[in-house]
Amino acid sequence: MSRVPEQIDLPLRVAATIVVQGLRIRLGRSLVTISGVLLGIAMLTATATGYLVKDGVREEDQIRGDVRRMTNFLTSELGTLEGKSLALFAGDEPTEAETRLLAELARQTQRLLTAPDQPALESKPLPGERVPKAAGLLEADACVVIGSRAETAAFLSQLQEAHYGRPVAMTRLTSEETTPDDTLYFLPLSTELSEQELAAQAAEKRTARYRVGWVLGIALLVTLMGITNAMLMSVTERFREIGTMKCLGATSRLVRRIFLIESLIVGVSGALAGALLGALFSLAFYCIVYGPALLVGSLDLGVLALWLLAAVLAGVFLTIICAIYPASVASSMVPATALRSNV
């Protein structure tokens, strides 16, 4: 023999088969490695989902509080709403809270009359029956008006002309905005937040964002450590095996490729399972804390899916990054040295 040919380069498919075989053969061990990735990503998604849920719930809580307050204002003025009839007018698109208030009123009262010619109603029809003429509204026990004074000026002046003497509940009017010489009997449903309260709220929001960033950062760090550890373990405990593989003719490239493919498989399966488990665990936990109704009402599934996708991608990326170093160490080891190691 005068020339040694190069060891043929095994195609990716063959390397992948070797990896899959290896993973299947040492199933127990692969499960430990995968669960390392799984736990890391589960921790990350559980934390993220928790914040997502709490954020949604806080918003939902706010809306529910608003609806409760507005209904209370109305009942304290009119007595029980049962059997009453109300006239509705919207000068602007109703907000989420206002929509729910209307639904609540529709549930409690006997009749809702909706004023004709309302520009805001094209996209979101108000509940209740439509009366053909504004005059029909005058029968109602009270008016519920959505929008500020300016937005509903035309309707209000109609009421004024008709000398409407019953309460006119304004969803976006605060008590400061009414004056004693108003001819209409205004019932302001909105509460204006003071300057300090607004500032406090903004500050609260800011610190909340820092806190989320901080906790997510820590979670990411823990995830990173878990994955690095799992991958390092899975390579170092196989130094001897790598030495044997090289004795049997595995090229460095094959060894590296084997570990990278393995990390890809471990990363994808671990991250997928981890993201699902983490999210489910977190959702189950908050389901117990807040109750299923509030949770379902407040959860933004689109955002949650985006978070999960990001977590899976992060998991796969981290796993591969964490595998590159041990894989290159393993692949560049002198066979004799690898064989001597007794890990």
Partner: peptide
């Protein structure tokens, strides 16, 4: 020889037997 050629050599030219067998336990 470069590493690829060495791998070829180890793969086809030489068979190794060790005191400790060095079988891959999981296979």
């Amino acid at each position: 020889l470069d590493t690829e050629e060495l791998a070829w050599l180890r793969c086809r030219k030489i068979g190794y037997i060790f005191q400790t067998f060095n079988l891959i336990q999981v296979m």
